[in-house]
Design a protein around this nucleic acid. Structure first.
Lengths: 105, 105
DNA sequence: GGGTTATATAACCGCAACGGTATGTACGAG
DNA sequence: CTCGTACATACCGTTGCGGTTATATAACCC
């Protein structure tokens, strides 16, 4: 699953992710909160689904959308290549992370 | 400076960032390595410049482009809101980060 | 200064994405 | 089984973006 930069480039889709970060929601709820048409919302949700950023749980006619953070974790991994550029204590942080890894293994 | 999601959505621009992560480069070098036309490269560089992701150092007719990681740091901060979703030991990590902060203050 | 090198800007084109309206589908209620 | 609800899909118009070629700008070289 490639990092979905283009999917995240869309402001409305990021708003959807922000809303789903709080709790799962129905399409109707998202439609109201985004101020979009219902099909517009559905279309964004399709894109997010195909990018693996959300998953659906069906409940009769309703569909609960919830967050799926794996692609964001991959984005985080990509960012890691650049992190030492702004994180002064990066090396020490890495050292601490290694310790965490050792603790849990 | 808002997080430049749309700027990063472009694959060629991410390639430019990857190349600049190694070392600063001239427009001509980037043009060759990307396989684009020279104006195409310049246009991407303009977008990256306006997003604050690169800066230019002029040297006669040449322009050395180099990375400016601040916007990526903001992206990192945005990601932080989601990080606990995939980082099992997030709370412990946060604790360690706080310790780092205390050490350096 | 005239020519060359290095880069930026302008003008243009094709395509894909986002938004809407209209319609299809699926499930439950009565 | 019919109607209403909740969502998805089809289709279309507009717009913005990435790519190109052509041209402008600016600095060095001789």
């Amino acid at each position: 699953m490639p990092i979905p930069f283009d999917v995240l480039a869309e402001p409305q889709r990021r708003r959807i992710l922000d809303l789903l970060l709080e709790r799962p929601r129905l399409v109707g709820e998202l439609t109201a909160e985004l101020g979009l048409s219902q099909p517009g919302t559905s279309k964004h949700l399709r894109v997010l689904r195909e990018a693996g950023l959300v998953r659906v749980r069906q409940d009769a006619q309703r569909r609960w959308y919830e967050l799926r953070p794996e692609p964001l974790a991959e984005l985080d991994a990509w960012l890691a290549h650049y992190r030492h550029l702004w994180s002064a204590s990066f090396d020490r942080l890495e050292h601490h992370l290694d310790q965490l890894k050792d603790d849990s293994s």
